[in-house]
Nucleic acid binder design. Sequence first.
DNA 1: ATAAAACCTGTGAGCAACTCACAGGTCAAC
DNA 2: GTTGACCTGTGAGTTGCTCACAGGTTTTAT
Lengths: 148, 148
Amino acid sequence: MKVKDIANAAAVNPDTVRFYTREGLLNPSRNPDNNYQQFDADDLRRLRFARKARQLGFSLPEIRAILDQAEDHHSPCPMVREVFEQRLADVEREISELKALRQRMTSALSAWQDMPDGTPDGHTICRLIEHWDDTPTVNPSTVNGNEE
Amino acid sequence: MKVKDIANAAAVNPDTVRFYTREGLLNPSRNPDNNYQQFDADDLRRLRFARKARQLGFSLPEIRAILDQAEDHHSPCPMVREVFEQRLADVEREISELKALRQRMTSALSAWQDMPDGTPDGHTICRLIEHWDDTPTVNPSTVNGNEE
DNA sequence: ATAAAACCTGTGAGCAACTCACAGGTCAAC
DNA sequence: GTTGACCTGTGAGTTGCTCACAGGTTTTAT
């Protein structure tokens, strides 16, 4: 398989295949005639594995470590479980941060309903933002809307 | 005010001040004696404005556009409102995506409870990931947990 | 007075995971 | 034999900083 073939087989951009090869996730052999990269079924398995792992939140260095462990006939699964718990915690944190941002945004938006636009006067740029209070809301029921 | 002074006054990293200056958000004058940058109250106002806008999700190019409008004595507020709605929609989308990721992760995690680790056999790298089903769950009540 | 510490300057690289562009080589079909 | 689709490696762009570097300036301490 050449670059485009394996890219099609895994439904990814050929440039991603090249990039993963550069990053050491894929190790194609070479056609001595033309120096083209030759991917085999094992490369395809690694590529598909990498894509699934990416969808599950693993980083490329992590995926490479997993792949390398498997290459050495060590089970990467314990490492996968360990890294995964950390990743899940990261995702939870990111969600909280984005929710906090959304909370800041929606509260700003409702406060802006009644505010005039105003023209810059040399002291103010845009009151909407400048007079926005960035101290977090303390009422728990309005902070997270009782979700999750 | 020199770099460190304005950085302290706005509670940001001095390198951020330098970066914003490079990006054209700040336009300090120069001390002819030593070529040091001189920030005034107006720069501080712009810097604080920029930080607040960042917290509200505005990008640096957007902030620069807002600042430039205000500089020209046009009210940037209508633009602020317009961009803001778009940003809010982006944040909502990011939250949904992260929630979908979390859903994939937690469902994978629970499925892994009962799976053995296994050793790579030349056909499998890590069954946890390879046998993970990436087709989205369709049951709405388990997809978003009825939140928000 | 002098030496060390703390600041200043501009510039370039690093982060993450691609994606795209470029310039040139190879190969299939017509 | 020419066109078009593919291949090659490399470098830059994305975002918002943060850090490093090498060298100049100012402040502080001795």
